[in-house]
């Protein structure tokens, strides 16, 4: 068999093994699964945060100091959901057929990446603030009471 014939046979074989339409469909399913996982994580985070805020309302005033913790956890849910959605965007570029779709994907990926970056910074800042508050409370608790000696 000549070299050219071998190339044609191998290309025909791979086209039969992995037809483009089937590959697109498989990647489309993967994209939907990954994007659904991301959306589910965001929705669960929102529901959890709503339940916590409702509980804070029922308990009444004096619970405002816990709000930052609730927002911090909601931010973590958003960041995790965004990671899944970004993964879906990367997968979708494999089957994007036109420049318009690629442009939309680029815009969505940029928005999600920027939001992920801002959320990461806010989470780190809130974590530092919560640690500072806890440290101050521990120092206040360990200080001996005046006049007890």
């Amino acid at each position: 068999m000549t070299c050219g014939a071998r190339v044609v046979v191998s290309m025909t074989f791979s086209a039969e093994l992995l037809p483009e339409a089937d590959l697109r469909e498989a990647i489309g399913v993967l994209v939907r699964v990954v994007e659904t996982a991301g959306a589910l994580i965001i929705f669960v985070g929102a529901v959890w945060a709503f339940a916590r805020f409702a509980a804070a309302l029922v308990r009444g005033r004096g619970q405002a100091t816990g709000f930052n913790g609730i927002r911090l956890t909601l931010g973590r849910f958003l960041a995790l959901g965004l990671e899944f959605q970004l993964a879906g965007d990367v997968l979708r570029t494999a089957i994007a057929p036109s420049f318009t779709e690629i442009g939309q994907l680029a815009a969505i990926a940029a928005i999600r990446t920027a939001l992920n970056f801002f959320l990461g910074r806010e989470i780190a800042k809130e974590r530092a603030e919560v640690a500072a508050v806890q440290s101050a409370q521990r120092k206040a608790d360990s200080r001996p009471v005046e006049g007890s000696r």
Binding site: A39, I42, F43, G45, A46, A49, F50, F53, A54, A56, L57, G60, R61, G62, Q63, A64, F67, R71, L74, G75, L78, G81, L82, Q85, R112, L115
Partner: peptide, 27 residues
């Protein structure tokens, strides 16, 4: 509304609303 009712400060309630609107926008 719950955050404002508890804290009486719009600075506490507005970020809560915007976080949820961000989540809704992503969905």
């Amino acid at each position: 509304i719950a955050a404002y009712t508890v804290s009486r400060w719009i600075g506490q309630a507005l970020p809560v609303l915007l976080d949820f609107l961000t989540a809704a926008g992503l969905l």
